[in-house]
Amino acid sequence: MTYQYLLFYKPYNVLSQFSASEDATSALTLKAFIPVPEVYPVGRLDRDSEGLMLLTDDGRLQHRLSDPRYGHPRTYWVQVEGDPTAAALAQLRQGVVIRGYRTRPCEANRLPTEPPLPPRDPPIRYRQSIPTTWIAMTLREGKNRQVRRMTAAVGYPTLRLVRWAIGDLTLGSLRPGEWRSISPDEQRWLRTMV
């Protein structure tokens, strides 16, 4: 059987599902962007998060990438309010307690420059007196709203959250709302995950 694997740049304020839920009937869903039948998202992104989603009809791969036991890396570019200290970044790397749970260690580093992302619609709030900083965080687990809760736990609330990569798969040149099939090289990487 030939499986389909798609990469999608989920825009802000889009649900990472194909059907609208009762509490969010006015929100756009994946159906508005992806006309390919029988593919399903591998994992989720919150409505107020943006970035890379993998969709497939390969149930085995979907299970493997979604199961926390396997801990595949996901990299996020996170714009936070303020200027995180070295101690705050060290705390993120070691894991922080959120809702009674200690997160696994992760990678957390300040990005040297603002990442080349398209502007968000609507834009994030801007406050002249408070700087913002971009950090890259690579996690190997995915609890609900985990990145946002982690940055808040160390004193730097998340303003914008973009998933840049799932393992070796990246947004690359995709723009918000665009999707594409993965390349043969990307398929080879995915096969190593199963």
Rank of each mutant, 00 (worst) to 15 (best):
K31E: 09
R175Q: 15
A24W: 07
L7Y: 09
P105L: 10
R99P: 02
A152F: 03
Y76H: 13
R180G: 11
H72C: 04
S173E: 14
Y3R: 15
V42E: 00
T25M: 15
A88W: 02
V154A: 04
E38Y: 07
A20W: 03
A88Q: 05
R69K: 14
D67C: 07
R104D: 10
Q17M: 13
P35F: 05
P112N: 11
K143I: 09
Y40L: 05
I130G: 00
L61T: 06
A108Q: 07
R125G: 05
E114N: 12
L161N: 02
E114D: 15
P35K: 04
F8W: 09
R104F: 05
Y40E: 06
P68I: 11
Y3W: 15
L7N: 03
A87D: 14
Y70N: 13
T113H: 14
R145F: 07
T138H: 06
G59H: 12
V154D: 04
W77A: 07
Y156A: 02
Q94M: 09
V96A: 09
R188L: 14
T56E: 02
I98A: 13
A136E: 15
W77T: 07
R69S: 12
S21F: 04
V97P: 02
R69C: 02
P68Y: 09
V36F: 05
M137T: 05
I166K: 01
G59Y: 08
E178H: 13
L6S: 11
T151E: 03
V97D: 13
I182N: 08
R180C: 13
D58E: 10
I98D: 07
Q62I: 03
P41L: 02
R74D: 01
S16G: 11
H63F: 12
V96P: 03
I135M: 06
A136L: 08
A152C: 04
A165Q: 14
L174K: 11
S173H: 12
L30C: 05
R188M: 10
Y40R: 08
G82M: 01
P131W: 00
Q146Y: 06
Q79P: 01
H72N: 12
G142K: 05
K10R: 12
T56M: 02
R69Y: 03
H72D: 10
A152N: 06
Q17P: 06
E107C: 08
D185P: 02
G172I: 09
R163H: 09
A20H: 12
A20F: 02
M1D: 15
L159F: 04
G43E: 01
S66M: 15
R47D: 00
T85W: 05
R120P: 01
A108C: 14
P123S: 06
E50L: 03
V96F: 09
D121K: 11
R102F: 08
A87T: 13
S173D: 15
F18R: 08
R104L: 15
V162K: 01
V162P: 01
R191T: 14
R160I: 04
R47V: 06
A87K: 13
E186W: 09
W179M: 05
G59D: 12
A136T: 08
I130L: 03
L190M: 11
P41M: 02
L6R: 09
V194E: 15
H63Q: 14
Y156G: 00
R120T: 03
